[in-house]
């Protein structure tokens, strides 16, 4: 590990040793990750779907089960952090982490209407939801390049 990498790691460790504990001090705009599947890399997306939408209902039993195993939800919380990082301080790490997890989901074939042969390209965007007065507003803060669903960046 280089000196620079060590310093970077220590910088990541310090907030844990001297925490500020300011949970939910303000309710900041909240990110959603949306994805679209495209036939070609040059297509313009006409519809976006929310990635990992929450279920309509969750029983008390399921909530209690999640006390012991909540991998999928905790990954969703990590995706939220990545989306916030990507908006405030864009890095290759954040976008690649999001992309990797979207691709993994597509491979598991749990995403609606995914057909790797018909729509082999994908793009994601970040939409931030916030309240202005009584109205909810949505703002797109980031649009990714077009990627091959199973390959590298196309453009």
């Amino acid at each position: 590990m280089s000196v620079e990498a060590m310093l970077q790691t220590i910088k990541l460790l310090l907030p844990a040793l001297m925490p500020s504990w300011r949970f939910f001090s303000v309710i900041a705009p909240s990110p959603r990750i949306e994805i679209t599947l495209l036939k070609t890399a040059k297509d313009t997306p006409d519809s976006w779907q929310e990635f990992r939408p929450r279920p309509a209902h969750l029983s008390i039993g399921s909530m209690l089960k999640r006390m012991f195993y909540n991998a999928r939800w905790n990954e969703a919380l990590f995706l939220t952090s990545l989306a916030e990082r990507l908006s405030s301080n864009p890095t290759e790490h954040s976008s690649q982490e999001i992309l990797k997890r979207i691709k993994a989901e597509l491979v598991r074939n749990s995403f609606d209407s995914f057909d790797s042969a018909a729509t082999p390209h994908l793009q994601f965007r970040l939409v931030f939801v916030h309240r202005e007065g009584e109205q909810l507003q949505k703002h797109v803060t980031f649009i990714s390049p077009v990627y091959g669903s199973f390959g590298d960046t196309d453009s």
Partner: peptide, 11 residues
């Protein structure tokens, strides 16, 4: 209403 945290839409 709009944060990423409620575990279901019903909440």
């Amino acid at each position: 209403q709009f944060s990423a945290y409620p575990v279901s839409e019903a909440l």
